[in-house]
Design a protein around this nucleic acid. Structure first.
Length: 879
RNA sequence: GGGCGAAUAGCUCAGUUGGUUAGAGCGCCUGUCUUACACACAGGAUGUCGGGGGUUCGAGUCCCUCUUCGCCCACCA
């Protein structure tokens, strides 16, 4: 294998890296489990900012006003684009051996996608799901395009609510004017009416009367419409149909004119139906400047009432954050309700699950209230809308192929100037990347429906929901069975890391300081289901040192094992007679099975058992942090801390038992490397390559995922011997505690007497494992039937075994008494609360039998232990 | 305005359907270069599980309420 150079990172910046890392971990896992997963990283949005710049540059160079993606460019330009944007990410992904199929990723400019987009448009049109609508949409006066609801983001702002009095043309019963309230006074130039609620007694008389619109002096009617809320403001609302979606509806109901008083660039101007509405002095004035001017003039003329501060949310362009202007215009829309129906059903029925589960409610809520999707954009790059209009006025032509002349009159045609929303191509992604609309495409048949979509919640609506709708609309099937929404990388202030905010972490620096494996490990281990990953950009050590330390530990375990293998052959575990396995061998093999089971539980199941997810499967799996923790616990806490330590003596002693230990070491370490490969791919690969016992030409990334041993650990007897190693661990822990308690130098060998519990198995454990215990605890063990008299430190193990360290001169009797009394006291306290629980009628009768049984058993054990401890205290401390 | 989530050790977080004495990593304290590893080893200290109320034999876990923070959605001028 060619290992990547050490300074290769799998990410561009940490935010991106999270997504790529999660995807790669899951794909690596699936491949080891036997799935030939095809990973399609990213979308045509990879590097959208760069894309924007590149497209504009290309368009300018070619003198085009519209740049039709996939149709206007040359191959060389495509290549340049890929290099400039997605290419960087993808090259790095390939460098780490990620299973990325990068030719499919930066496909924005390909003719294939262009074809798919046209196909989708035409299909929807033919089903009557695309229509041209004349309505008020969100308009960005900086990007000069319309936006969908999702692209116009709400941001809270402290604005002003201006109260303006509109005089009556002919005053009635002492009433000279009505007051309206507005946050956007400049739009009053486009007012065509004032509405009051028909049930509002205050204004009943006014309905049908006329008002003089200040500034312009135009006469407008007072109309009755339920839209006016008597409880808000003055109960009178001005109606500006061309610049407010609600007012537009009111205008339509009352057949009012709809003057446009603002230019696309946000300047005041007399647009359609607006002759005489914008005074000369305001023409060409920016909307916000015009607002100030108008407010001043109203004040001067005495038309301005109170001005209240008003916190409200204002829509901004998601890309440039300019305040979005509602604007009447003609746009293409997709009728969403019919598309949403199967998408809703899929999630409700469990055909598609969303993890974490709570996002399902958000998804359902959004789809239930879905509104039609404005798909036309006035940007100068994108997929152009495949609609041509006839110069002679015949019906427009909607076509998959380019149209040059009108089929009716053979006259000239003109393609619609607009391009499509970029998400109109993105929602086709699960199948357009696989060859759609060619139904016979090999990849489409092989890979659709796909499996897991991994992304951040922020594009649940933009992209995920629409892909699901698109999957059903164009393929008749779900695009994937699982949506996994991961968290966001944030700093300690919980602010999203981004280049523009400067709170990001440079991954190259992290890789340089801690290594790429440590970076991956840190991200994966920190990724609780749906939780954000918090990293302090000012304290990399806190975040990444644990990952680095773990990787180093792994390396050192490998170094130790490899150095003990030497040139001699290592037997495969299957060639070792089960009877020759030691307690520690059986124990670590048991622990390995547990670790494999824990990892499998954390990760799986990979797909639903049936057509839909069962309730028990719905919330399981893809718990990456639990998987990382299970693997780590096994490698460090069990393999390194106990098995390797216990094996040292056997390795040094040589003989047949040495070969058994070597075989088990290799087997267990090999499995551990497999478990870790998806999270720590580099170091595990490097170590595994050096490990004997597997095909030389293989790579760890392609090796099978470990399975639990079907034959167990050698029958009932074997299982018992495995659990007997727990007694060894307990004894060693007790001895270490005593040593530490009496500050005995760790290196010093001391004597220890063990009085095993009164059963043959316990006796055998200490007979046979005395050497191991002695090495691990640095003691020389003597077995006895009764505790020796004399000054000594004592410990009583759970099973009743006594551990005694007789050290005249070092052990202080008084101190030992204090220690033992403290221990006894603690035990008695716990025993008392336990007894109380068991004496409680309610507990015994209502708690499940197994819980009560466990408590009873505990009571017996603790009582015995208390007796032993009390004896110690009595004999040694005299009372 | 509606909805959702979070609050557990100094820090970052686990804690699955209520059931031992609430855990991990880092940090902290004590000791150690024990022939893989001081990025390590051994031992140790640290929690009114945000506040209050309730249900239950039993609550970090379920219900109500309050506080603080965060996120999503939203055409009330």
């Amino acid at each position: 294998i060619v290992m990547p150079p050490p300074n290769i990172t799998d990410i561009l910046h940490v935010g991106h890296g999270l997504n790529n890392t999660v995807q790669d971990v899951i794909v690596r896992w699936r491949r080891m489990a036997g799935d030939e997963a095809l990973w399609l990283p990213g979308t045509d949005h990879a590097g959208i900012a760069t894309q924007n710049v590149v497209e504009k540059k290309l368009a300018r160079e070619q003198g085009k006003t519209r740049y039709d993606l996939g149709r206007d460019e040359s191959d060389a330009q495509t290549t340049a684009y890929v290099d400039a944007t997605g290419g960087t990410i993808l090259q790095q992904l390939r460098a780490i051996g990620a299973s990325a199929d990068w030719s499919r990723t930066a496909y924005t400019l390909t003719p294939e996608l262009s074809r798919a987009v046209r196909e989708a448009f035409v299909q929807l049109y033919e089903k009557g799901l695309i229509y041209r609508g004349h309505r008020v949409i969100h308009w960005c006066s900086r990007c000069l395009t319309s936006l969908s609801d999702e692209e116009a983001e709400h941001e809270d702002e402290a604005g002003s609510l201006y109260h303006i009095s509109y005089p009556l043309a002919e005053p009635i019963s002492g009433l000279a004017s009505v007051t309206v309230a507005t946050t956007r006074p400049e739009t009053m130039l486009g007012d065509v009416a004032v509405a009051v609620n028909p049930d509002d007694p205050r204004y009943r008389e006014l309905i049908g009367k006329e008002l003089i619109l200040p500034i312009t002096g135009i006469r407008i009617p007072v109309i009755a419409d339920a839209y006016a809320d008597p409880a808000f403001g003055t109960g009178v609302v001005k109606i500006t149909p061309a610049h407010d979606p609600n007012d537009f509806e009111v205008g339509r109901r009352h057949s009012l004119p709809m003057p446009i008083v603002m230019s696309p660039t946000g300047m005041m101007e007399e647009g359609a139906d607006a002759a005489g509405r914008v005074p000369e002095r305001l023409r060409g004035v920016d909307r916000f400047a015009a607002r100030a001017v108008i407010v001043d003039e109203l004040r001067a003329a005495g038309h301005l009432g109170k001005v209240e501060t008003h916190n409200h949310s204002v829509r901004h362009c998601y890309r440039c954050h300019t305040v979005v202007e509602p604007r009447l215009s003609d746009q293409w829309f997709v009728k969403m309700e019919p598309l949403a129906r199967p998408a809703l059903k899929a999630v409700r029925s469990g055909a598609i699950r969303i993890l974490p589960e709570r996002w399902e409610a958000v998804y359902i809520n959004w789809l239930e209230g879905i509104r039609d999707w404005n798909i036309s954009r006035q940007l100068w790059w994108g997929h152009r809308i495949p609609v041509w209009s006839c110069a002679a006025g015949h019906d427009p032509i909607i076509s998959r192929e380019d149209v040059t002349r009108c089929p009716k009159c053979s006259g000239p045609v003109r393609q619609d100037d607009d391009v499509l929303d970029t998400w109109f191509s993105s929602w086709l992604w699960p199948f357009s990347t696989l060859g759609w609309p060619n139904a016979d495409a090999r990849d489409l048949r092989a890979f659709y429906p796909t499996d897991v979509l991994i992304t951040a919640p922020e594009i649940l609506f933009f992209w995920v929901a629409r892909m699901i709708m698109g999957g059903f609309a164009f393929m008749g099937d779900r695009p994937f069975h699982t949506v996994y929404l991961h968290g966001t990388v944030r700093d300690t202030q919980h602010i999203k890391m981004s280049k523009s905010l400067g709170n990001g972490v440079d991954p190259l620096r992290v890789v340089e300081l801690y290594g790429a494996d440590a970076l991956r490990y840190t991200l994966v281990a920190g990724l609780g289901m749906g939780a954000d990953v918090i990293i302090d950009p000012k304290d990399l050590e806190q975040s990444f040192a644990p990952g680095r330390n773990f990787v180093t530990k792994l390396r050192n375990i490998g170094k130790f094992i490899l150095s003990n293998l030497g040139d001699e052959a290592v037997s495969p575990l299957s060639a070792i007679a089960p009877s020759s396995l030691s307690r520690s061998d059986r124990w670590i093999l048991d622990r390995l099975d547990v670790a494999i089971a824990d990892c499998d539980t954390a990760l799986g199941p990979a797909r639903p058992t049936g057509r839909t997810w069962r309730p028990s499967e719905l919330r399981s799996g893809l718990r990456l942090s639990e998987y990382a923790e299970a693997a780590r616990r096994f490698v460090w806490g069990e393999l390194a801390d106990w098995y390797v330590e216990a094996a040292k003596g056997r390795l040094m002693a040589g003989g047949a038992d040495r070969d058994v230990a070597r075989a088990v070491l290799v087997h267990v370490f090999d499995a551990a490397l497999r478990l870790l490969q998806p999270i720590v791919p580099f170091v595990t690969e490097e170590l595994w390559q050096q490990l004997p016992g597997h095909a030389d030409d293989g790579t760890l990334a392609r090796a099978p995922w470990p399975a639990q041993r079907r034959e167990g650990t050698g029958g009932r007897d074997g299982a018992a011997r495995g659990s007997e190693f727990e007694v060894v661990r307990e004894t060693v822990a007790a001895l270490r505690q005593l040593r530490s308690e009496y500050a005995i130098t760790p290196g010093k060998m001391i004597p220890a007497v063990i009085v095993p519990a009164r059963d043959a198995a316990a006796r055998a454990v200490f007979d046979e494992e005395g050497g191991t215990i002695g090495r691990l605890a640095r003691v020389t063990i003597t077995l006895a039937d009764v505790a020796p008299s004399g000054t000594a430190a004592h410990a009583v193990l759970a099973g009743g075994t006594e551990v005694i360290v007789p050290l005249e001169g070092i052990i202080d009797v008084e101190r030992e008494c204090v220690r033992l009394r403290g221990e006894l006291e603690g035990l008695e306290k716990q025993l008392a609360s336990l007894s109380q629980r068991l004496a409680n009628e309610g507990f015994v009768s209502r708690a499940p039998a197994h819980v009560v049984e466990a408590e009873r058993k505990k009571e017996t054990e603790w009582t015995a232990r208390r007796g032993q401890l009390a004896d110690k205290v009595r004999s040694m401390c005299g009372g």
